[in-house]
Amino acid sequence: MSRIIISTGKYVQGNGELKNISNYVENLGDSFFIIASENGIKRTRDAIEESFKGKDSLLAFEAFNGECSKNEIDRLCKKLKENKNNVVIGIGGGKIFDTAKAVAYYAKVPVVIVPTIAATDAPCSALSVIYTDEGVFSEYLALPKNPDLVLVDSSIVAKAPVRLLVSGMGDALATYFEARACVRSGAVTMSGGKATKAAFALSKLCYDTLLEDGLKAKMAVINKVPTKAVENIIEANTYLSGVGFESSGLAAAHAIHNGFTALEECHGLYHGEKVAFGALVQLVLENSPMEEIEEVIDFCLQVGLPITLNDLGIKKVNNEDIMKVAEISCAENDTMHNMPFEVTKEDVYSAILAADELGKQYK
C-alpha cells in the first residue's frame, strides 16, 4: 500500500493578510466568484476591493443561503456560469468552505478558502459535507484535490467568539491520538494510502502546540487581539490538524463524536467540543498511561473543553442513550475500525462511563 500525503496548494496566514489577497490569487484567474454570508461580505468587501484596486480583475460577491445543499450548490454554479467567473473564493466558516469547494469542483475552476474562524480543520481538506435544504446530513463529496489556496487573516480570526477558537482546539486535540492509532493499525487514511512520517510528525506538532500555546491564545482572543500564541493555535487548528487528520487518519474520537450527535442534549455543542470528549474516551479505550490522560484533562480544563457527560449537556445519564452513542460510533463504515484492536459497542459504552467518572474526579 502506498504512503500518501495531501495538502492545500498554498497556505498563507498572518495579521492583515486579507488586504494582500489579490497578490496570492492572480495566478489562478482573473474573474472571482466570492461566496460569503451577507455579514461576511459586509466585513470583508472593502479590504478585498482595495486589494484588487487598479488590477484588471472582476469581482462578483454572492451571499450564501446558509446550507451546503445540492440546491444551493446548483444555484451558485448557475450564477458563476452566468458571470463567467473562473475562480471561486469562499469566505467564512465550515459550510461556506464546503459549498465553495463543491461549486469549484463542478465548475472545474480553482478554489480559494478564506476562514474567518479557526473552529475546525476543514479549510484545507479535499472533502465537502452535503446536507439537505433542511440541514440533515445527505452525503460526503470526496474531491480530487485540496483547495488551491487557504488564506487566513489572523486579525479577523482573533475577533471571532473565543468559544470557536477553543472548539477548534478540541478538534485538533484528537489529531495526534487518532493518527497514532492509525499508524499502529496500518489503516488507510482519507488520502487513499497509509500515513507518511511527515503527516504523523505534523499531528504530533499539532498536539505539542496546543499544550504550549492553547491557554495563552484563549486569553488573547478574549481580548480580540492576535498574538504569537494565537498565530500558533490558528496554524495548529487549521493546517497542522487538517493535514494530520486527512493524511494520518481518524479513529475512535471522531467516531464517538458521531455517536453523540444522535443525542438531543448535545445539539448545542460545536463539533470540536464533542471531539475533545471523544479523545478522552479513546484514551480510556486504549488504556493509555494515567500521565497522558491527566495531561489531556488538564488541557481541557485550562481552555474550557468538556471532560464529563454533564459538560456535554447530559445532565442525567441514561444508560440506553449511552449505548446508542456507542452503537452508532461502531457503525460499519465509521472510523472506529481504524483502531489497532477490535472495538465493540460494549467497549465504547464502558469507556464513555469510565471517562465521565475520570473527568468528575478533576472537577
Rank of each mutant, 00 (worst) to 15 (best):
R3N: 13
I4S: 04
I5A: 14
I5R: 10
I5V: 06
I6R: 15
S7R: 14
G9D: 02
V12R: 13
V12D: 07
G14D: 13
K19W: 10
N20R: 15
N20Q: 15
Y24E: 13
E26H: 05
F32R: 03
S37T: 15
T44N: 14
T44G: 12
R45L: 02
E49Y: 03
E50K: 13
F52V: 03
N65Y: 05
G66F: 00
S69Y: 00
N71E: 13
D74I: 11
R75I: 08
C77K: 12
C77R: 10
C77I: 01
K79M: 09
K84Q: 14
V88K: 13
V88N: 04
I91C: 05
G92K: 03
A100C: 08
K101S: 00
V103N: 10
Y106S: 06
V114T: 04
V114A: 06
I117W: 05
A118F: 02
T120W: 08
P123N: 10
S125Y: 01
A126F: 07
V129T: 07
E134M: 12
Y140C: 09
L141K: 09
N146S: 06
D148F: 01
L149F: 00
S154N: 05
K159N: 12
V162D: 12
V162H: 08
R163C: 02
L165H: 07
S167W: 08
A174W: 01
Y176Q: 06
Y176E: 11
F177P: 03
R180A: 12
G186R: 09
A187G: 05
V188M: 07
V188T: 14
S191F: 00
G192K: 07
A195P: 10
K197H: 14
L205V: 10
L211D: 06
K216E: 11
K216V: 01
K218C: 06
M219Q: 15
V221H: 11
I222V: 12
N223D: 15
T227C: 05
T227R: 11
K228E: 14
E231W: 04
I234M: 04
A236T: 05
T238E: 07
Y239V: 12
L240V: 02
G242L: 03
V243T: 01
E246H: 04
L250I: 00
A255L: 09
I256Q: 10
T261A: 06
A262I: 12
A262N: 14
E264S: 13
E273W: 09
A276Q: 03
F277P: 04
G278T: 02
G278F: 04
A279W: 00
L280I: 11
L283R: 14
L285S: 10
P289R: 09
I293P: 00
I297P: 00
I297S: 02
V303I: 00
L305T: 04
N310C: 08
G313I: 02
K316V: 06
N318G: 09
N319D: 11
I322Y: 03
M323T: 07
E327R: 15
S329D: 11
D334T: 00
D334N: 14
H337S: 14
E342W: 05
V343K: 15
Y349A: 03
A355Y: 12
E357Q: 13
K363L: 14
